[in-house]
Design a binder for these strands. Structure first.
Length: 269
DNA sequence: CATTGTCCCTGGAAGC
DNA sequence: TGCTTCCAGGGACAAT
């Protein structure tokens, strides 16, 4: 399930293979993914355009096209972007064909992914808070964003308007590293706890990028390789396993219908 | 505005 | 063995 480190990995590995290439055709296998555009309208606005730039914002990938359109892709749970797949893979929704004969396929088993064409930054920027790895995201900025929030810190970390890019897995890992209970009200955290959580978020995201993301569920890199960040997970999806620090079984709790995994001994309320 | 619940979607696992 | 139900979760959206 692609979160910030997975999307960043995809961006980095895709970039050298697609920048400057011209899209000669797009095959639409599932028109629902380009809704509200029709398949032909989508094809009309994409075909013949060159990919000038690729960037990540939160969990979004943004392909800058030469006609000043932006192709925005959100992979949600099960989306993947694969370069030159050897065959037509199951759940293929779109295939981009380039002028050098190469191809980029978008597959999405659960079909929750989003593809959007826009000429503005607004649809993405309106939904997102700051990038946690940018220097301008300071601990003071983080503290301000948690101030007076009564919701559980786990729910607040998943709010993309508070911080962009953190998903369920890395929220659990950051809270474990910072030794904070996922239900702790966000606005009640002490300055020390906020500092620990701030450090943990940055360390965990950076480390996961170094490991090319976590291959939980269907995540694959553009060449089909897997990431290895999940081998370092302490709590995410580790229900019942002994905590690496104290041996207490990892517990699962539902917060906002999201599975939250934590060590009840290391992360006291 | 902050918060919370529901829905979307599919396929693997679990339960019967 | 084969059926049904549950579960995974990002985020849009509606309700409060």
């Amino acid at each position: 399930m692609p979160e910030l480190p997975e999307v960043e990995t995809i961006k980095r590995e895709l970039e050298p293979h697609i920048i400057g290439k011209k899209i000669t055709a797009v095959t639409v296998y599932d028109a629902r993914i380009v809704y509200p555009l029709s398949a032909s309208a989508f094809q009309g606005r994409i075909t013949g355009q060159r990919i000038e730039n690729l960037r990540r914002r939160g969990k979004y990938l943004i392909f800058q096209l030469s006609n000043s359109n932006r192709l925005v892709v959100h992979l949600r749970m099960s989306g993947a972007l694969l370069l030159n797949p050897p065959e037509l893979l199951p759940h293929t929704r779109l295939v981009f064909h380039f002028d050098d004969g190469s191809e980029l396929a978008l597959t999405d088993r659960r079909r929750l992914g989003i593809v959007l064409l826009t000429d503005s930054e607004k649809p993405v920027e309106d939904r997102l808070g700051p990038e946690p790895l940018e220097p301008r995201f300071t601990v003071e900025e983080f503290a301000n964003r948690l101030h007076r929030r009564r919701a559980p810190i786990k729910a607040v970390l998943l709010d993309q308007k508070v911080i962009a890019g953190i998903g369920n897995m890395y929220a659990d890992e950051a809270l474990f590293q910072a030794r904070i209970h996922p239900l702790h009200p966000a606005g009640d955290l002490s300055p020390e706890e906020i500092q620990r959580l701030y450090n943990a978020i940055r360390e965990i995201l950076c480390s996961a990028i170094d490991y090319k993301g976590a291959s939980v569920d269907t995540y694959q890199r553009p060449g089909g390789e897997l990431g290895t960040a999940h081998f370092n997970f302490n709590v995410a999806h580790c229900r019942g396993e002994p905590c690496h620090i104290c041996g207490t079984p990892i517990q699962r709790l539902a917060i906002r219908n999201r599975g939250s995994y934590f060590c009840p001994n290391c992360q006291k309320y």
